[in-house]
């Protein structure tokens, strides 16, 4: 549907210019992550460094903070919790907007309301509760809280997405004698695939970057995710130099970036709800 020609060129030009402006902070990030650790002066942040110090910086970061050990746990939390949350969110989205419960908005707000609470408010009560329930410093404990944190967004997106699906789809399924579960799992979920993937990658990134809950609800390196280890690099009391902090930040941010890139194909035009209209 795209048209080349002056409108198309203008569009692309605008996108390129705005994109470049957007990338400036990232340029600063990468350039200073590559800079050798002691070459940063505070005033030379724009210049391209004369030697490539990225690997050295990363290894310094790893020695200081033991990042590598927490990568496995972080991957575990970032995949399992959003996965569970996306399914739970789809369940409630389906229940609230396709089935006809009494007070659907109330139940939806109860679920979405979880997003309303400030994280810092949850820290101390959760810490005490986790300690009493023996969930403190366990993988299960962190998976549970991360899932709970991810459910509200999933519920919001999917409640609205399913609400936009034409009802004749549901009625057709009912006429064919499909059970509710089959209707949900085999018809509505595939239709919502792009929304599910979008929510998943957003939550993946959010959980991957979590600092507070991992810091508070776990104490061993094998259970804590990677961000608390990264945070220890930035401290008035000794921390690390700016290039080391940035290098660690860049390397640790790679998985979410890779996930975004890999998921791009889900957003190519084609995998669309519009196709259902043709059925």
């Amino acid at each position: 549907m795209s048209r080349l020609g002056s409108a198309g060129l203008l569009r692309r030009a605008v996108l390129i210019v705005v994109g470049l402006v957007w990338l400036v902070p990232l340029y600063l990030l990468v350039v200073n992550a590559i800079r050798p650790s002691t070459a940063f002066t505070g005033t030379n942040e724009w210049t391209i460094p004369s030697s490539f110090g990225l690997f050295q910086n990363v290894s310094t970061a790893e020695q200081s903070s033991g990042l590598a050990g927490s990568l496995a746990s972080t991957a575990l939390y970032s995949i399992v919790s959003p996965g569970l949350a996306v399914v739970i969110g789809a369940l409630v989205g389906f229940g609230v907007s396709v089935l006809q419960p009494r007070r659907p908005f109330f139940w939806f707000m109860v679920t979405f309301g979880g997003a309303v609470f400030p994280a810092q408010m949850l820290l101390v009560p959760l810490f005490v509760a986790y300690a009493q329930l023996n969930l403190y410093n366990t993988h299960q404990g962190l998976i549970i809280i991360y899932t709970a944190l991810s459910v509200p967004l999933a519920a919001l997106v999917l409640r609205n997405f399913f609400g936009g699906v034409p009802t004749h789809l549901f009625q057709a399924a009912q006429i064919d004698g499909a059970s509710l579960w089959t209707t949900f799992w085999r018809i509505y979920i595939p239709v919502a695939l792009s929304a599910l993937v979008a929510v998943f990658i957003l939550e993946f990134t959010f959980i991957w970057n979590d600092l507070l809950f991992g810091l508070t609800l776990a104490s061993s390196n094998g259970v804590r995710p990677v961000m608390p280890a990264l945070a220890s690099l930035q401290s008035a009391y000794g921390g690390s130099t700016v290039p080391v902090v940035l290098a660690a930040g860049v390397v640790v941010s790679l998985p979410p970036v890779v996930v975004f890139l890999a998921a791009q194909r889900f957003f190519a035009r084609g995998l669309a709800l519009s196709q259902i209209a043709e059925l």
């Binding site: 300690a131 403190y136 810091l215 945070a231």
Partner: peptide, 19 residues
């Protein structure tokens, strides 16, 4: 912990638990 304030709160809270 690198954030002193959160650290203090967690230590205070830990006195009431068995962790």
């Amino acid at each position: 912990y690198t954030n002193e304030d959160t650290y203090d709160a967690i230590i205070d809270a830990s006195f009431r638990t068995h962790s």
